[in-house]
Design a protein around this nucleic acid. Structure first.
Lengths: 341, 341
DNA sequence: CTGAAAGCGCTTACAG
DNA sequence: CTGAAAGCGCTTACAG
C-alpha cells in the first residue's frame, strides 16, 4: 500500500524507540501507562496495524489455520455438499473466537494438498474436511504425520488411523435410524451408500444398520445394499437400480441426505409414495432436509460442536498439548418421510 | 515446526549461495540449468518450501485475498444464506485459478472489519460479500476508499457508491419475473422484501417490479409491499401480515428465495395452494429452490461468473489497472410455483 | 551466471 | 520502564 505507517514511524512521532512501540501495542506490562496511551493514540490516528508478515516471521508462527476441503469426485461447478458448508460456518466461527484466521482451500483429492500450507508457514495447522476416498487419502495423512504437521481430520474415528480425527458416532446413528424404521414396521430396508473401507463413515453407518437388523433377529440381505457416493444423482441411480432389479423394499436408509433426496426423486418419478410405500431416511440433517416434501427423517450431526472440537483440538496440538480422537453423538431428527409428525 | 529447512540449508548442501537457491527455485532465467536441477533436487528431498512470511515481507505483497462476509442481522448458529455459500465456492475457485489464497472472515456488520486485513498486510485486497444494511456499511466503504484499500463489493451497482461493485441486474431480474407473473394472468402481485435504500439490491428488484406493473398499465398498491430481510422467518411473517390485514393477492414476488420459502410455508399453513391460489417467485436460485415442492420459480444470479468477475476485478485493481463496476445479467428459472412445467 | 550486501518490519533476549 | 542490537528467511539491486 501507499506509504503504510510502520512501528518506526510511530516511534519517531512518540519520541520513543521502536521496540517500545511494539511492546506498548501488544499490551506488554513492562511499559509505562502514559507512554502506552500516547503511542496508542498515534497508532490509531495513523491507522497503524502490525505487519503480520514481519510479526509472524519473527515469531515463527502464523495465527492462521488452513481448512483443506477435499471432495471426490469433483463436484460440478460450485455445488458443495451443504453439510460441509455448515461445518465451514462453524469452523470459521470457532477460529474467530480463538483469534485465528482461516485460510480456506478447496482441494481435489488429486492435487498435492498435504504440503503447501503448514510447510510454507502460512498456517500453524490444518483441518481436513470432506468425504473422499479414504484409502487414497491415507498415505497422505501418513506423510503429514511423518512430517510432524499439525492437523485434525473430520471423519470416521478408527483405530488404525494416522493422526487425530473428530467424527460423529456413525455407527450409533445408523443403528438408531434403522431401529426407528423397524419400529415403524418396515422389514425390507435398503441401504444406499458405499459400504467399503474406501468410505469409512458410510461403512460405519452401514454397520450400525446391520447391527440394528440383527438385534431385531433379521437377516442382512446384501442385495439391499447399493453403492452410492454423496450426490443426489447417485441416490437417484441407486433407487432405479433397485427397482429395475425388482428388489422389493419398504424403506430406505441413505448414507447421506443428498443421496436420500436423489432417492426420493426417483421414487416419486416411479410413482412410489413416501412414506406410505417406502419410508426414507438420510444422514446429516442438511437444511434442505426440513424443506423438501415430505420432510426427511435423518441423523443429525452437531456441526457447531464439531467445528468447535476441531479447532480446539488443533490448537491444543499446536501448543504441544496431548490430543486424541473424539467421537461425537449423533441424534435422530424424525420427519414425515418415515411417517412421523 | 521442527527444524524446517531454509534456503540457506539448501545453499550449503548445493554448494552455492543462498540467493542462488532463491533464484533457482523461483525459476529465474539467470541461473544455470544444471545448478537449478541440483538445487531443486535437494529442495524436494528436504521438503523445502519458501517461507511465505519472509517472502511476503520482502516483497511487500501477500498473494492472499480476504473475503469479508457480513450479514445482518446475525444469522443464528451456522446457517448462512445458501446463495452466499455458492458465491463463496465460486470465489474460492477463482482465487485458486489465479494462484491466490483466500482468507475468509465472517463479520458481523458491527465489528470493525474494514481494517485488519489489508492494513496488516495479510491480504492484498478485500472482497465484500453479504446482504447487510447498506447505509451502515457505506461510511466504512468510504473509509476504505480513503485509505486506498483495494476492494470489490458484491451488491447493487449504483452511481453514488464508493468503490467498485459487481452485481447482477436486479432491476431487470425483478421486471422479468414480474412480467412472467403478469403473463400468467396474475393481477395482485405482492412484493415481499425491504424496499428502502438500506437494502439497495432489494430496492432495485422492487423498482423492476414496479416498472413491469406500469408497463402493463397497472397501479402499484403500496399495501402489497411488505418489508422483510433475507430469512425464511421474515418471509413467513410477511405473508401472515398480509393475510391478517386481509390484503388480497394472487401472486407474490419475494426479494430472495429464502423469503419465498418462508412465505410458501405460511401460505401452506393457511391452506392456500401454490400456484393455484397464489403464485410464488423468488430471487437467487439457491439449490433448495429446485427441491422444495412445488419447485420455486426464481431469478438466477450467475454465481460462477460473479466469483470470477470479483476476483479478476480485484486483481486488476491490485495491479494498478483501471477497473469499474459491472452489472451481470439475471436469468429467469421457471418452475411449478408460478404454474410452469 | 553467481555472490556479498542490504533490508522488508517486526519481536525478543540483553543491558541498563 | 526503556533502548541498542540481533535476527526471523527471504528477495533484489549491485558488482563482477
Amino acid at each position: 500500500m501507499k506509504g503504510k505507517a510502520t512501528s518506526l514511524d510511530i516511534a519517531h512521532l512518540a519520541g520513543v524507540s521502536q521496540p517500545t512501540v511494539s511492546r506498548a501495542l501488544r499490551g506488554s506490562p513492562m511499559v509505562n501507562e502514559e507512554t502506552r496511551k500516547r503511542i496508542q493514540a498515534i497508532a490509531a490516528e495513523l491507522n497503524y496495524k502490525v505487519d503480520k508478515n514481519a510479526s509472524n516471521l519473527r515469531r515463527q508462527h502464523s495465527g492462521t489455520i488452513a481448512l483443506l476441503f477435499f471432495e471426490d469426485p469433483t463436484p460440478d461447478d460450485s455445488q458443495i455438499n451443504p453439510f460441509f458448508l455448515s461445518m465451514l460456518g462453524s469452523i470459521t466461527r470457532a477460529c474467530a473466537l480463538q483469534g485465528y484466521d482461516l485460510l480456506i482451500s478447496f482441494q481435489q483429492l488429486s492435487t498435492n494438498w498435504q504440503a503447501d500450507y503448514e510447510d510454507s508457514n502460512k498456517a500453524d495447522g490444518l483441518i481436513l474436511l470432506g468425504y473422499g476416498d479414504y484409502l487414497e487419502a491415507q498415505q497422505r495423512l501418513q506423510k503429514l504425520v511423518r512430517q510432524g504437521t499439525h492437523f485434525v481430520r473430520w471423519g470416521a474415528v478408527l483405530p488404525d488411523q494416522p493422526g487425530v480425527s473428530i467424527g460423529c458416532d456413525n455407527r450409533q446413528g445408523g443403528a438408531d435410524i434403522t431401529r426407528h424404521l423397524l419400529e415403524q414396521g418396515r422389514r425390507r430396508i435398503a441401504f444406499i451408500g458405499d459400504a467399503s473401507n474406501h468410505y469409512p463413515e458410510f461403512l460405519e453407518r452401514y454397520r450400525g444398520y446391520g447391527q440394528a437388523l440383527q438385534e431385531a433377529g433379521m437377516q442382512i440381505d446384501p442385495r439391499l445394499q447399493v453403492d452410492a457416493i454423496t450426490t443426489e444423482q447417485a441416490g437417484y441411480d441407486a433407487v432405479l437400480h433397485l427397482l429395475d432389479q425388482q428388489i422389493t423394499f419398504d424403506a430406505l436408509f441413505a448414507a447421506s441426505d443428498l443421496i436420500a433426496i436423489g432417492a426420493m426423486k426417483a421414487l416419486h418419478e416411479r410413482g412410489l409414495v413416501v412414506p406410505q410405500q417406502v419410508a426414507v431416511a438420510g444422514f446429516d440433517d442438511i437444511p434442505m432436509a426440513g424443506f423438501i416434501s415430505p420432510g426427511l427423517s435423518t441423523v443429525q450431526q452437531d456441526t457447531k460442536l464439531a467445528g468447535t472440537m476441531l479447532v480446539e483440538t488443533l490448537l491444543r496440538q499446536i501448543n504441544g498439548e496431548p490430543v486424541e480422537s473424539r467421537v461425537l453423538p449423533a441424534r435422530l431428527v424424525l420427519r414425515r418421510s418415515t411417517g412421523m409428525a
